[in-house]
Simulated assay, not measured.
Amino acid sequence: MPTVFRHDGFRFFFYSNEGNPREPIHIHVMGEQGEAKFWLRPEVSVAESVGLDARTLRRLAGVVGNQRELIERAWHDHFA
């Protein structure tokens, strides 16, 4: 599970086995309160979440949006 980056106590990462066929580019986020999965395209959106409130999800979606290029590069590097 490669970690792409950390922010405010949350770890942003991929699972090495992202399905077969592989799902579109997304990022998993885990913190003490819970975890979530975000799609990156066509726009950043929550795919699923457990234990995180709406305010936290909005904040994390903003972080994902701001780091979208980094996440996409890391995805392509890891799964190439």
Rank of each mutant, 00 (worst) to 15 (best):
T3G: 00
T3D: 09
T3W: 01
R6C: 10
R6H: 08
R6M: 10
H7R: 09
H7K: 05
H7L: 08
H7A: 07
D8K: 08
D8W: 02
D8M: 02
D8G: 01
G9E: 10
R11G: 01
R11V: 06
R11F: 03
F12A: 11
F12M: 12
F12S: 04
F13G: 07
F13K: 10
Y15T: 01
S16K: 02
N17L: 08
N17H: 12
N17F: 12
E18F: 02
E18N: 13
G19P: 07
N20F: 06
N20H: 12
P21W: 01
P21M: 02
P21V: 00
P21N: 01
E23Q: 06
E23N: 04
E23V: 02
E23Y: 05
I27R: 00
H28E: 05
H28K: 03
H28V: 00
V29K: 02
V29M: 07
V29F: 05
M30A: 15
M30P: 01
G31H: 10
G31I: 14
G31Q: 12
G31K: 10
G31Y: 13
G31E: 07
E32Y: 05
Q33E: 14
E35C: 11
E35H: 15
E35T: 08
A36S: 14
K37L: 04
K37P: 00
W39K: 09
L40T: 03
L40W: 13
L40D: 12
L40C: 13
R41H: 04
R41L: 06
R41T: 00
P42E: 09
P42Y: 05
P42A: 00
E43P: 06
V44M: 08
V44N: 07
V44Q: 03
V44T: 04
S45E: 13
S45F: 06
S45V: 10
V46Q: 12
V46F: 10
V46E: 13
V46H: 07
A47N: 04
A47F: 09
A47D: 11
A47K: 11
A47H: 12
E48I: 08
E48A: 15
S49I: 01
S49E: 14
V50Y: 09
V50I: 07
V50E: 13
G51M: 02
L52G: 04
L52M: 11
L52Y: 08
L52A: 05
D53E: 09
D53N: 14
A54S: 14
A54L: 13
R55H: 14
R55M: 14
T56P: 09
T56R: 15
L57W: 06
L57P: 05
L57Y: 11
L57Q: 07
R58G: 14
R58T: 07
R58C: 11
R59T: 15
R59S: 15
L60A: 10
L60E: 07
L60M: 14
A61P: 09
A61C: 08
G62D: 12
G62P: 02
G62V: 06
V63G: 03
V63D: 05
V64Y: 08
V64H: 06
V64I: 12
G65S: 10
N66A: 15
N66P: 00
Q67R: 15
Q67L: 11
R68K: 15
R68N: 02
E69Y: 11
I71A: 07
I71C: 09
E72C: 03
R73P: 03
A74D: 02
A74P: 00
A74C: 01
A74V: 00
A74Q: 03
W75F: 13
H76C: 09
H76L: 13
D77H: 13
D77V: 06
A80R: 14
A80K: 09
A80C: 06
